[in-house]
């Protein structure tokens, strides 16, 4: 579904070059729930941005549903993002002046659906996240957890091939974080592929596969219930085992 082969991303200024991703090889299959871990500055978010077609890359290939996206122009990348990818951000990134319904509507507008189709999808997405009754509320009238659920509804409404979540619980307290994670797990169980960046080992343990990144390289891949690639069982995998995943 998503395949990275030797992908490198370098940030350049007039003085220095920073290799944010260094020859990343990654194959994500449909229905997987993958977490990406690593210390700050390790390249987690860059990996997510490249996978989400928000940033270009210098080397390697990125195949999305078998199609190479390297060299596609901005309009084609926008269309691919709109049709195949849903984003969930740590800071929710809702449009504060628009009510919940209209926030969820944003990507559907760019998809060109008619009003009836958009309404059906928005109602369905809001029902999944349990916010049908809040459709006319402005984001500021909702709690952090509810705002993140609106963001999830927005990501889901377009029925994307996969969701990219960048620390989706980073701004939430533990109760709300748990709610959001349960929701993401439920969405994943229904067939949507999820790639999630997190610092939280406990959350990472709930994933089917956990990738550890350091200095732009994948240094560790652990699958739930299996030993990691390096032959050791990671802490998160052990916890996942305890959690029964």
């Amino acid at each position: 579904m998503l395949k990275m082969a030797g992908v490198s991303k370098i940030y350049r200024t007039s003085e220095i070059e920073t290799c944010a991703l260094n020859k990343i090889d990654l194959h994500i299959k449909a229905g997987e729930f993958i977490t990406v871990k690593g210390p700050s500055g390790s390249g987690k978010t860059t990996l997510l941005n490249v996978a989400g077609l928000l940033e270009s890359f210098e080397e390697g290939e990125l195949l999305l549903d078998g199609d190479n996206v390297k060299g596609l122009n901005d309009d084609k990348l926008s269309a691919l993002r709109n049709q195949k990818i849903g984003f969930i951000f740590q800071g929710f990134n809702l449009l504060p002046e628009l009510p919940v319904f209209d926030n969820v509507d944003v990507p559907l507008r760019y998809r060109g659906f008619d009003a009836k189709e958009r309404k059906k999808r928005i109602d369905n997405a809001l029902e999944i996240v349990g916010l049908t009754s809040r459709r006319k509320h402005l984001p500021m009238q909702l709690s952090g957890g509810q705002q993140q659920r609106v963001a999830i509804a927005r990501a889901l409404a377009g029925e994307p091939r996969f969701l990219l979540a960048d620390e989706p619980t980073g701004n939430l307290d533990s109760t709300m974080a748990k709610e959001v994670m349960e929701l993401l797990k439920k969405i994943n169980n229904e067939g949507t592929t999820i790639i999630m960046v997190t610092h939280d080992d406990e959350l990472a343990a709930k994933a089917s596969r956990s990738i550890n990144i350091l200095d732009g390289r994948i240094v560790d891949v652990a699958e739930a219930g299996k030993t990691n690639i390096g032959g050791h069982k990671t802490q998160s995998t052990q916890e996942a085992d305890h959690a029964g995943l």
Binding site: S78, A79, N82, N93, Y110
Partner: peptide, 16 residues
Amino acid sequence: TKEVALRRALGAKRNV
């Protein structure tokens, strides 16, 4: 700028 960034992430083409 942030709204533009978000709309572009959600699939808005630049000319739109």
